[in-house]
Design a protein around this nucleic acid. Structure first.
Lengths: 186, 186
DNA sequence: CGCCGAGTTGAACTGAATCAAGAAACGTGG
DNA sequence: CCACGTTTCTTGATTCAGTTCAACTCGGCG
């Protein structure tokens, strides 16, 4: 397993033409720690590439706050359901540190895709990548124990354990804070 | 939740130009019940659109046969990991009834995508769709009990309960055959 | 007929959730 | 910079859904 749904945006930025197109429409934005970058039940109009800081996507599952995605620098984050389906999202996005990022609007992405075959192509590649990530995440949740998922994340993204509150890592890994704490305490 | 990962291929066929392009490269194929349409540990070169019959994608998770996708008529099936990443797949595909289908090779899809912006566009839409399906499947497994997942599938795809052996439905729903049987017996 | 895989049923087990309560960390205002 | 209240984390006891293991039944097919 590679990224555990932490999308690396390099795919988009490493191609000069794509990067240049994105430059033109990118809007630099900042968010303060704790700020909600996107509110659930609204349409998410932006796709964010983080330059600094950590953010998470979460929603309320049976009244409980569940984190489904965490992104750091060089990674992307959006309310994917809304972004794809152009309907109100069940997800919110929260800045967990002060964030510097660039935002690209859904409309601009559509326009660039319509205009440029190559851009459309990279859009497809990006979706292929996050699809595989998601399939791996699903496998991990079904196949591995809480212990194994904890160790896996610890190995792949140790920084997160310093930067993100334990309760959010716990729900991201599909376990309760109590279980997370017990595993941490060996 | 809509499709529980049962991709409907109408997206591809309802557009006349796309359908016509696909016609040109589509290879009609048949498989007998029980036949393996794709062997794991080989590269899956085809994407199948089923015209008649039921097939499943499965792999061995800790030595156990786990079904991860089931497709009927008008739906598509492939070893998605291999198809996207062009590497050996961990999945196999098995015909659970005699199958009539058309096969489209990965190469042809790539060529059509390179040649036709519109085709590329539909490729992207298709991926968006299966991404949302997969996200819903993940949610379902985390949020709902075995009971609820059973009822959900029963309501959405009652035909499958006649056509597919219980043990495969069980693993598809993320439970043991015993649990499946107990739920079925009310 | 007799076999064999599939399905059912029962009993014991278990990983993780839940409930509860105390300790530590945080941040906000004085 | 400290005090206080709130949130987060830890630790323990209990519960539960679902797995595992095992035995038995059924139905199709040689």
């Amino acid at each position: 397993m590679e990224s555990f749904f932490l999308h690396n945006a390099n795919l988009l930025l490493e191609n000069p033409e794509i990067a240049a197109s994105l430059q033109e429409v990118a809007i630099p934005m900042t968010f303060k720690k704790g700020e909600i970058m996107h509110h659930s039940n609204t349409i998410c109009k932006h796709f964010y590439l983080l330059l600094d800081g950590v953010a998470r996507v979460f929603y309320y599952r049976d009244g409980k706050d569940v984190t489904v995605h965490i992104a750091q620098e060089q990674e992307s984050i959006t309310a994917i359901d809304s972004f794809i389906q152009r309907k109100k999202s069940k997800y919110s996005i929260e800045a967990m540190e002060n964030i510097e990022c660039i935002a690209i609007s859904r409309n601009d992405i559509e326009e660039l895709s319509a205009k440029s075959h190559q851009f459309e192509h990279f859009g497809r590649l990006f979706l292929e990548k996050i699809y595989i990530d998601l399939a791996e995440r699903l496998d991990s949740l079904l196949l591995h124990t809480s212990h194994e998922r904890y160790e896996d994340l610890l190995q792949k993204k140790p920084e997160l354990f310093q930067r993100v509150p334990a309760k959010h890592l716990a729900s991201f890994l599909g376990m309760t804070p109590e279980t997370f704490s017990r595993i941490r305490g060996k």
